[in-house]
């Protein structure tokens, strides 16, 4: 039977604020789900706590809304033991990067078969608007009336540093790009981290507007496409190698398109992807790449895990009686 987005909707009333970016992501995911070609019962959504983490309640699959920050750990336990399932994690910038930072980096380095969607609105939505680990320095919120002091995380840089085998970034309002990115993530074996720029219109409205506004975005954003030179969408400027070996941005007219780096998400060396993730200005959002930064093959943790079990069982299954007896026993009559 052919599935449609409707098959993945639940009868639960969606309770995000009207206008929240989460709606667009939910609709995008629901219409993408049929592409997986999986029966609904074989898909599981697991989340932590936050506005974003309500997501599983709205997906007509198996799902668990767990506790703050721990979804990657819980999902790892499920994915490792049930390789027959397609396991997806929804998390927020606070959930994934503050309280759950440890689980996120370890899931990434292990490469468990998980697809992690990180809804980044640069704010704590559910607790009503404190700054988050992705908020820009100087952010004025209820908990930082004089502006926040701590330097933000860049989730893509963090993931690459944590040995992630798949890292991408997309935007809530760009359905086509969102769908393409989910498709690439779904095909990847191992952990895929997809950062989704999401608007919280209540506590941090317009956080990503420069990248959405049709007048400016083309001069601010790189769309990463394999085999294509990495230029801003308007083609004006491109990424080139600087004399000191790092990356810099130059006028394409000046340096010539042939000196612009060609994107290669499959590059085994993470250095270029990391440098790309670090080009953007966290305040103005100038020079922000979106797309798949890194997508390299690496055996998933769960496949290696089950290979060990299979090889242990190849010598025959265990016999409980002889296990309990051990090899040093005596008889009492």
């Amino acid at each position: 039977m052919k599935q449609s987005a409707k098959d993945f909707k639940t009868d639960q009333e969606v309770r995000w604020c009207p206008g929240c970016g989460d709606y667009a992501i939910l609709a995008g995911v629901q219409s993408f789900m049929p592409e997986l070609g999986l029966a609904k019962e074989n898909i599981v959504w697991i989340s932590g706590i936050g506005c974003s983490s309500r997501f599983p309640y709205y997906m007509n699959t198996f799902g668990m809304h767990s506790i703050h920050g721990r979804a990657p750990a819980i999902a790892s336990g499920l994915a490792i033991t049930r390789p027959d399932l397609s396991v997806w994690v929804v998390t927020g910038d606070g959930d994934a990067l503050s309280i759950g930072g440890n689980h996120l980096i370890h899931a990434l380095r292990r490469n468990v078969n998980l697809k992690i969607l990180l809804f980044n609105n640069r704010i704590y939505g559910l607790t009503k608007g404190q700054y988050s680990p992705t908020s820009e320095v100087g952010k004025v919120t209820k908990s930082t009336p004089m502006g926040s002091l701590d330097h933000p995380f860049n989730p893509v840089s963090l993931a690459i540093g944590a040995e992630a085998s798949f890292v991408a970034r997309t935007i809530d309002s760009d359905r086509k790009h969102l769908t393409e990115t989910l498709r690439r993530a779904a095909l990847h074996e191992g952990t895929a981290l997809v950062e989704i720029y999401q608007n919280c219109n209540i506590f941090n409205d317009g956080a990503w507007d420069p990248l959405k506004d049709s007048e400016h975005r083309d001069s601010l954003m790189f769309r990463l496409e394999d085999g294509q030179p990495i230029t801003l969408v308007d083609g004006s400027r491109g990424v080139v190698r600087a004399a000191n070996g790092s990356l810099e941005i130059a006028d394409v007219a000046e340096v010539g398109i042939e000196s612009v780096l060609v994107h290669d998400s499959r590059n085994p060396d993470p250095a270029v992807a990391f440098a790309l993730s670090h080009l953007s200005d966290s305040v103005t959002l100038a020079d922000t790449p979106i797309g798949v930064f890194r997508d390299v093959p690496r055996a998933s943790y769960d496949s290696a895990f089950h290979a060990q079990i299979e090889s242990a069982k190849a010598g025959g299954r265990g016999d409980l009686g002889s296990l309990l007896a051990g090899n040093d026993t005596w008889e009492i009559a």
């Binding site: 767990s66 721990r70 750990a73 336990g77 499920l78 490792i80 033991t81 440890n102 069982k313 265990g318």
Partner: peptide, 30 residues
Amino acid sequence: KHKKFDVMTFQAEDEIAGVGSAIGAAYGGM
């Protein structure tokens, strides 16, 4: 040591992940 008894062990990154992974496995029927 006892994988051939269908025993799966996972050394997690901390105790929270230890119990978290166990909850995920319990949900999956282990």
